[in-house]
């Protein structure tokens, strides 16, 4: 599987302090940057893995992705007309549902037509509905954003976070992986158990579950950039969505969740969470 998944570099277990791990990662990245000039690999296109099978730790070993995404869907809320065709396109045209076992981590987004077709805004990877009526600050009164305010409709898109990637690091199962060629942070549905920890971990609450947490067949959905040709961008009726080279927007995008789950869940904590979620 995962022909386009990034190469994984194991972090030696003898490195126990954060400083030691950081030093190792930086050395590895700079070596691969050098290799990139030789045409071997992209800048930082590497995943790190901490812990190994010999450990008596029952949780899946942690991977650390430092590779940035190659692209990003950016939204211009002064152009959005609130039609939500992007949400419909996201779920209906790409792998927004996994009913036929479609796995965005392993299957090219646009080639597969076997998955069932549906329109389900609740699992859309771009989120407009939740800001439509009252805006990002919710229904406090009628003086905010949205249809009952000043008409600003904020389209929430996945920021494809740089390292540390909150949803990826929080996932107790290592189900969120970085997949080339665009290095989107993608849910590997073969691994995902639908616990919902990623939903809580994302400061912007971008992942969503397609069923009850941990129920059979429940999976997490998050933006995988449609392998570089996002369906939401193509469907936008007013040119409000654009696919651009990745830039870091995390620092100036206000968080939606004020108390996200820790992105550094210890394995035993993750196990505890998974028992309930």
């Amino acid at each position: 599987m995962a022909g386009n998944e990034l190469p994984v570099v194991a972090i030696p277990e003898e490195l126990t302090t954060l400083e030691q791990v950081r030093e190792f990662i930086h050395k590895t990245i700079s070596r691969r940057s050098f290799n990139k000039s030789l045409g071997i690999a992209g800048l930082g296109a590497v995943a790190f893995q901490y812990g190994c099978a010999s450990s008596n730790n029952t949780a899946t070993p942690r991977q650390v992705y430092v590779a940035n995404a190659q692209g990003l869907v950016v939204a211009d809320n002064t152009l959005c007309v609130g039609c939500r065709r992007c949400e419909a396109a996201c779920v209906a045209f790409n792998q927004g549902n996994y009913a036929a076992g479609n796995n965005p981590a392993t299957v090219s987004s646009t080639s597969d037509t076997s998955a069932s077709t549906m329109t389900q805004p609740a699992i859309s990877n771009i989120k407009v509905n939740r800001n439509l009526l009252y805006g990002v600050n919710g229904a406090k009164d009628n003086t905010g954003q949205g249809l009952y305010g000043d008409f600003t409709v904020v389209q929430n898109t996945c920021l494809q976070c740089p390292h540390p990637v909150p949803c990826q690091l929080a996932c107790p199962h290592g189900a969120i992986q970085v997949v080339g060629p665009v290095n989107a942070r993608v849910v590997n549905t073969d691994v995902c158990v639908g616990c919902g920890i990623c939903v809580k971990a994302c400061p912007w609450q971008m992942p969503s579950l397609d069923g009850q947490p941990t129920a059979a067949n429940t999976k997490s959905h998050k933006c995988h950039l449609c392998n570089g040709a996002p369906e939401c961008v193509a469907a936008c009726t007013s040119g409000a969505l654009t696919y651009v080279p990745w830039v870091d927007q995390t620092s100036f995008t206000p968080a939606r969740q004020t108390v996200p789950a820790s992105i550094q869940l210890a394995p035993d904590v993750a196990g505890t969470c998974a028992a309930c979620h």
């Binding site: 779920v91 045209f93 549902n97 077709t117 609740a122 699992i123």
Partner: peptide, 19 residues
């Protein structure tokens, strides 16, 4: 408030093409 889906019988490619 609904979190469910409207299921569409056509496959993705045919549906996208029709839209």
């Amino acid at each position: 408030r609904g979190t469910g889906a409207v299921n569409i019988s056509a496959d993705k490619k045919a549906w996208k093409s029709l839209i």
